[in-house]
């Protein structure tokens, strides 16, 4: 579980400002849902937390230390598409995370250590309901199963923060509900902070302990790219289940930050 602190964040590409004046604190163990219109910069914000994009101004602190400038095993990610490796079986997709950490030279485990890793991976795959397809290729799985595989893959390295970029956006409604329930269970079981981007408002409130709305507060009709989006609403979600928090979350009672 990690505390994320965002201070005076701006992100622009040339003259196009995407995010401006974003300042917020994400408490350890919370499940933050970020919503907003298409192109409002919510995915850019997530990629900054991930480390694959850098802020133009401002800084992001992870437990008080500056965020590393590249992705790492402390922050897991599940994307909407291209989430799993097509050339590895379901089991090997998950074993991979254990192999990278334990075998620097080959990135591959052998013998007893491999068996140990396979058992650990199989256990987590059983947990997400994929225990029966360990040897399948990812392209043989349905979209919902692929996303569950991506979750298992991200969780095996026990990230302190799990980032989700519209993880259920491409799924059928019934499957989507199952996947949401699974995410809630996994979040409740583990000591991790979750930040999820979605365009589905109902999903955001259903899953989130906190919902952030990204939008532009300043607009120039002639030059729409002049101003970026920021946090316009900061609301508590309907998710009241905070199993591992020693103290109540302070943000729930605070007024919205970042807006006018």
């Amino acid at each position: 579980m990690s505390r994320i602190e965002v201070q005076g964040l701006w992100k622009s590409y040339g003259d196009r400002v995407v995010l401006e004046r974003v300042s917020l604190v994400i408490e350890p163990g919370s499940l933050v849902a970020i919503v907003g219109a298409s192109g409002c910069g919510k995915s850019t914000f997530l990629r900054i937390l991930l480390g694959s994009e850098r802020p133009s101004r401002g800084r992001v602190l992870l437990d008080g230390a500056p965020l590393p400038a590249e992705p790492g095993p402390d922050r897991g990610i599940v994307f909407q598409r291209y989430t799993v490796f097509p050339h590895l079986s379901v089991l090997d997709n998950v074993v991979l995370g254990l192999e990278f950490g334990k075998s620097r030279l080959l990135g591959r485990l052998f013998g007893a250590r491999r068996q140990q890793a396979r058992e650990k991976a199989a256990a987590i795959l059983a947990r997400v309901g994929l225990g029966h397809v360990l040897d399948a290729w990812p392209h043989q799985l349905s979209g919902g199963m692929q996303q569950r595989l991506a979750l298992a893959q991200a969780l095996i390295v026990e990230p302190r923060i799990l980032l989700l970029d519209e993880p259920f956006g491409a799924l059928d409604p019934g499957i989507r509900a199952e996947a949401r329930a699974l995410l809630l269970e996994l979040w409740a079981e583990r000591e991790m902070t979750v930040v999820m981007v979605t365009h589905d408002l109902a999903e955001a409130f259903q899953l989130g302990t906190r919902v952030l709305v990204f939008d532009k507060v300043r607009r120039d009709p002639q030059v729409p790219e002049r101003y970026g989006a920021t946090v316009t609403y900061d609301l508590p979600g309907y998710n009241r289940f905070r199993p591992r928090l020693e103290r109540p979350l302070p943000h729930a009672s605070l007024p919205a930050t970042g807006g006018f």
Partner: peptide, 27 residues
């Protein structure tokens, strides 16, 4: 190759060398 996969491997702890060996080369 999809950038998502390269990023994903990094979040699993892959070094540049491991990424080349286990992800990029086989793909």
């Amino acid at each position: 190759l999809p950038e998502e996969l390269i990023i994903k491997a990094q979040t699993l702890g892959a070094s540049s060398w491991q990424l080349a060996l286990r992800i990029v080369w086989p793909m």
